[in-house]
Amino acid sequence: MSGLIGKKLGMTSIFDVNGKQVACTVLEVGPCVVTQVKTSDKDGYSAVQIAYGDAKEKNTPAALKGIYTKANTTPKSKMAEFKGFEQTLAVGQTLTVDLFEVGEFVDVVGTSKGKGFQGVVKRHGFSGVGMQTHGQHNRLRAPGSLGASSDPSRVFKGMRMAGRTGGTRVKKTNLEVLKIHKDQNLLVVKGAIPGHKGSIVLIEK
C-alpha cells in the first residue's frame, strides 16, 4: 500500500456532479520527501520512508539530521514508512498529491479525538438502565452485571468497562477522493476522518 503524510485542515460540504450536497474533509497532503529506501537485501524488508512538515533544526536529533542531509532536504517533523509503492523511488525525491486521482478510494489513518475517562454508554455504546422511574436511582448509565456469581467467581478478562476513551489510532477506509488542488497540495475526501483539525494523518491507497 502506497501513501503520503498529510494534515487535516477541516470540514465543509461541496456539490457533486448531480448537484447533491456532500460533506467532505479538506486535507493538506505532502509534499513529502523520500528519506530512505529500504531493501530486503540490506534491511530485511522493502519499504519507502517519507517525511513531511517542517521542524526546527535545533530540535532535530543528530541521527535524524544525518538522514535528512543524505536526502538533501531540511529537517522534517513527521516520518512514515510505506510498503508497496508501484514506482521505484530514489532518496531525495519529492512526492506530491499527484499520487492520487479524483474518483479513487483511499484510506485515512489518524488519531481520534481524546475524550478522557468515559463511562460505558459513551465508550462502548451500552444502552444504560433504560428507565428513569420504577425504583431506579443514580444508575441510569451504569454497566449492569459484570457476569455470573460463584461460578466463575471472577470477572472475565476484556470485560468492557469505563476508562480512557479516544486518542487511539483509527483507520477510516474507502473514502472517495472528490477534488484535488495540485498547486495548494489539497485533497478533498468524502465524509469525516478521525482527529482534530491540524492533526497529522496518513493517506493510503
Binding site: 485542515l9 477541516g10 465543509t12 461541496i14 456539490f15 479538506v26 493538506e28 477534488k179 488542488h181 495548494q184 489539497l186 478533498v188
Partner: peptide, 11 residues
C-alpha cells in the same frame, strides 16, 4: 484559508 479556497470554486 484552504477551506475557503475549496469552497470558492462553487461560489
Amino acid at each position: 484559508d484552504a477551506i475557503k479556497f475549496v469552497e470558492q470554486e462553487f461560489t
